[in-house]
Amino acid sequence: MEKNKSINNIKNLLLEQSYISDDAIAMSIHLAMFLKKPLLIEGPAGVGKTEIAKVMSKALNTNLIRLQCYEGLDANQAIYEWNYQKQLLYLKMNEQADLSYNEKEETIFSDDFLMERPLLKSIMAEESQVLLIDEIDRADEEFESFFLELLSDWQITIPEVGTRKAKSIPFVIVTSNRVRELSEALRRRCLYLWIDYPTFEKELEIVQMKLPEINEKLATQICHFMEEVRQLKLEKLPGIAETIDWATALSSMHIDHLEKEIVESTLGVILKDWQDIRDAQMSLSELLDKVGVTSKMG
């Protein structure tokens, strides 16, 4: 019987790729791999949802196949498409050849003329791949139905040639920022994980791992500041990605502690909305007091 080592193994695998996880993340990944089910990850933007797929592909030493979703995405871009130009060319070149209609049809609707798109590509690979279906909430609801056959039976039906069964089952990660609610049918086929903004300790650990050269005091102040900023009623709260960007920027300027003027001039790195910047500026002194930063007078 498999012991709980597997959870620690996954944590270590992720840590080797500089991704600091927790028990819930490790457990979800372990179960998704064990049950061969897709893992649906939801959470605010910039908390590391997509990153999980990237680090898992590195950790498993396999390819990452990514499908970036958007409104209007259809089967031709997600599953497969026939290479019409090539088919046309073939027919023109073989106009004089003594081939029957059926022979021509069989040839032009064969694998040579089939362009595999991410979903088909992921199941036709000889070895298991990591398939990232990113921001599925941006695609329209009709698109979700394309997934259902793939996610439940690991096969894709192509009308011209029949059903293609998976040669290997990919490790599927589906991410969503909750722009719209996903269908129950899709949810039921997935395991679910919610990733929230990190705790102060976890965020500090992440910053120090990503930027080993950063001054400890600066890293602590940055993480405290971010924790306080997230308490404000902002349009778009900054995620871990913004924390790392800010820490990188300040570190590259050889700054070893926060000052009001520096924070004010670099707010654009963590806040991406004009109104948010204005609101943060208004309560900057209060924020910095909480973090323990005093502004220089005069």
Binding site: A24, M27, S28, L31, A32, E42, R188, C190, Y192, L193
Partner: peptide, 10 residues
């Protein structure tokens, strides 16, 4: 965590 991963859907 195990129960949560499998039984929670939103």
């Amino acid at each position: 965590d195990l129960y949560k991963s499998i039984l929670v859907k939103n």
